[in-house]
Amino acid sequence: MLRLDGVSYRYPGASRDALTDVSLSVGLGEFHAVLGPNGSGKTTLVRIALGALPPLVGSADIDRRPASMWPRQDLAKLVGVVPQREDNLFPQRVRETVLLGRYPHLSLWGRERPEDHAAVDRALAACDARHLADRWVWTLSGGEYQRVRVARALAQEPKLLVLDEPGISLDLKHEMELFELVRGLVERQGLGVLMITHDLNLAARFADSLLLLEGGRPIASGAPAEVLTQQTVETVFSWPVAMQTIEGRPQMIPLRKPKESQA
């Protein structure tokens, strides 16, 4: 569905590559997570995968067509995105903002049809946000807001969902709920998911496959147990860790540095 093949990118005027030789393939019913420290190229990867930037080297295809060649409206019917940042210039109600997800399906002069409102209702229900429909967006808590943004992406009725750091600034319960929601969409609706996150443990628990980036280079990729080894994690994040296994998935625990090395 979404495929990056040997992608490299360098921003104009930059002295080093933001991405070097990265490959990734996300199919339907698969949950892929991209991990890495700050500045490791995660957001650049998403921009290239979604056609907002064309790769300098390699190819980035969605449904076997170069991502940057897709008309945006057609692509929005296929790929729903929960971007890292957005700000509402004007106050909006939840139902209105979720309805924005139907815009790619509307004709230039046509009104919203009953099926559009039905899709909004389904998306709200899938995200357990139906009771929020009439609230103002700015009154929502962080967790509710993220669920509404996922609902807007679902209202696009996409085959692929891309989330950029969706768990940031959420507390434990809301972050877990969000990951459970995304996992459920993969299993129940067969969506392909590409998620950028720096939460190694949650990614390892929920994703089928991980891609670990450092300085724009792919360090490891594959099943969580193969990617998250003590050695790799310590190298990439420059911090000592211990690894455990919970529910069959590797979990990382950062260690305190020994006293003498703190001095």
């Binding site: 971007p83 924005l100 509307l106």
Partner: peptide
């Protein structure tokens, strides 16, 4: 008037608008 819906999307910012189908 033909740009009415893309203008709604643009209120979210350029990147979200692009991902919701606007030719920003």
């Amino acid at each position: 008037l033909a740009a009415a819906r893309p203008l709604d999307l643009l209120a979210l910012g350029e990147e979200p608008a692009r991902y919701l189908g606007a030719d920003v």
